[in-house]
Computed example of a mutant assay.
Amino acid sequence: MELVDTLCLTAILLSLLSTLVQRDSTRYTKMPPGPTPLPLIGNLLQVNDNNKKCSSCFSQLSETYGPVMTVYLGGLHLVVLVGYEAVHEALVQHADAFAGRPELPLFKMISKGFGRCFNLQQV
């Protein structure tokens, strides 16, 4: 009897998990193609691969997915543009679609609402 209960519970959990994965995969169907994200962490393992610069990781991913791709960093989904042509087309020809920026609470706390400043020098 315990074996039957265990199998029923396992079947219920697997069906719930498959439903969640299927629902999550169809949530952003209008987004550009990109690497398949892992649950909770997204594509953090692919972007932070062996302490490479993000630009080299994105260049490598763009060979597979093209110059416009979607990358998931945790719960945040980002559209990444790689290359001059893709950035120029987005910012000049489709400026209205790319005008928004997400408000990140950590940066808002650090900058105290006065804007953003990043030091991109390699240490």
Rank of each mutant, 00 (worst) to 15 (best):
Q22C: 09
N50V: 09
L40Q: 12
L61Y: 04
L104C: 12
E89T: 12
D5I: 06
T19Y: 12
A90I: 05
P33D: 07
F58P: 00
E63G: 12
P67G: 10
N50H: 14
L61R: 09
A86G: 02
I110M: 12
P105F: 04
T6F: 15
A95I: 00
M1L: 13
L120D: 10
T36M: 09
K108F: 00
F118K: 02
V123C: 10
Y84H: 10
Y65N: 06
L44F: 07
I110P: 01
Y72P: 00
K112Y: 03
H77N: 08
C117S: 13
G100N: 11
F98A: 06
L81D: 02
G113T: 00
L14T: 09
K53Q: 14
T26Q: 15
M31Y: 14
V123E: 15
K30C: 07
T19M: 10
E85Q: 13
G75Y: 12
L7C: 07
V92I: 14
F58A: 02
R23Q: 10
K53W: 08
L16I: 10
V47G: 03
Q121E: 15
N43T: 00
Y65E: 06
D24E: 09
T36K: 15
G83Q: 06
Q121C: 12
A95R: 09
M1R: 06
G42Y: 04
N48Y: 08
L106M: 03
E103M: 02
G66M: 02
P102W: 04
Q122T: 11
F118Q: 03
C54T: 06
V4E: 13
V123N: 13
D24Y: 04
Q46M: 08
E103A: 01
K53L: 15
G34C: 05
V80G: 01
P67E: 03
A90F: 09
D96A: 15
G74S: 07
Y65T: 06
M69K: 02
E2L: 13
F118I: 06
